[in-house]
């Protein structure tokens, strides 16, 4: 079966361009798995649906107490408006708060970068944990880990063409620690080289990535997620 084709909505894309973007993909991702400052407004999520998206996934990062409260409020607003996006969680506390609150019936995915550790946990544990927490699939960009999964049970959403390398909470764009109210990066990116480093390092949001190839073809990979 062909994997579902998803793409991350570029930050700052004008709303009038949403329909053209949405038409090209089976599912649209929005938000960030790394920076809480890039959480989409409820109105933006609604606009994606209005543009014709049939399936939406909202990415969320690690969250402090303050960010957790904001995220629960935001997603509560979205669900109360009758929208049912899938939620990609990168924080166990946020998952617990959402499941206890307004999004108890939501479908979840386990987001990067939390999935790095979880992918290395025993498959039996993962299946149980996913079943207990309403997690439909795990997000990753590690081709070897995805290809190494046994085909029974675990489902993978594979991100390409960038592989996560590292992240920081000291904003690379402002040098300030903690969450910013208004993102300074505004969708900008930079690429770097350094002697001895295997490839060009891409700075996007508050995380760094290497470029990778196409997603692996494997029964566990049921979704591919493209970032432009």
């Amino acid at each position: 079966m062909r994997p579902e084709r998803a793409a991350v909505l570029p930050y700052g894309l004008p709303e009038r361009e949403y329909p053209a973007f949405v038409r090209r993909w089976d599912r649209v991702y929005c938000g960030s798995s790394f920076c809480p400052g890039l959480a989409p407004a409820a109105a933006r999520i609604a606009a994606i649906y209005r543009a014709g998206a049939s399936a939406v996934t909202v990415l969320t990062p690690f969250v402090t107490d303050a960010s957790l409260a904001k995220t629960v409020k935001l997603l509560g607003e979205v669900f109360r408006a009758g929208l049912r996006p899938q939620i990609s969680v990168s924080d166990l506390g946020l998952l617990s708060a959402l499941r206890a609150g307004p999004c108890r019936r939501a479908s979840f995915t386990l987001g990067r970068p939390l999935s790095h550790d979880f992918l290395r946990m025993p498959a039996q544990f993962l299946k149980k944990f996913f079943a207990e927490n309403g997690i439909a699939m795990i997000e990753t960009d590690e081709a070897d880990m995805a290809s190494g999964l046994s085909s029974g049970g675990l489902k993978v959403a594979f991100h390409y063409p960038f592989r996560y390398v590292t992240m920081t909470r000291c904003c690379p764009w402002t040098g300030r620690m903690g969450n910013c109210a208004r993102p300074a990066c505004s969708g900008r990116r930079r690429t770097f080289t350094a002697s001895g480093m295997p490839g060009r390092l891409l700075l996007s949001e508050n995380a760094y990535f290497f470029r990778t190839g196409k997603p692996p073809i494997h029964p566990a990979v049921v979704r591919t997620v493209f970032t432009s």
Partner: peptide
């Protein structure tokens, strides 16, 4: 473990 909030700590 990246425990950034009370909810995670409770877990």
């Amino acid at each position: 473990s990246c425990c950034y909030n009370l909810r995670t700590l409770a877990l």
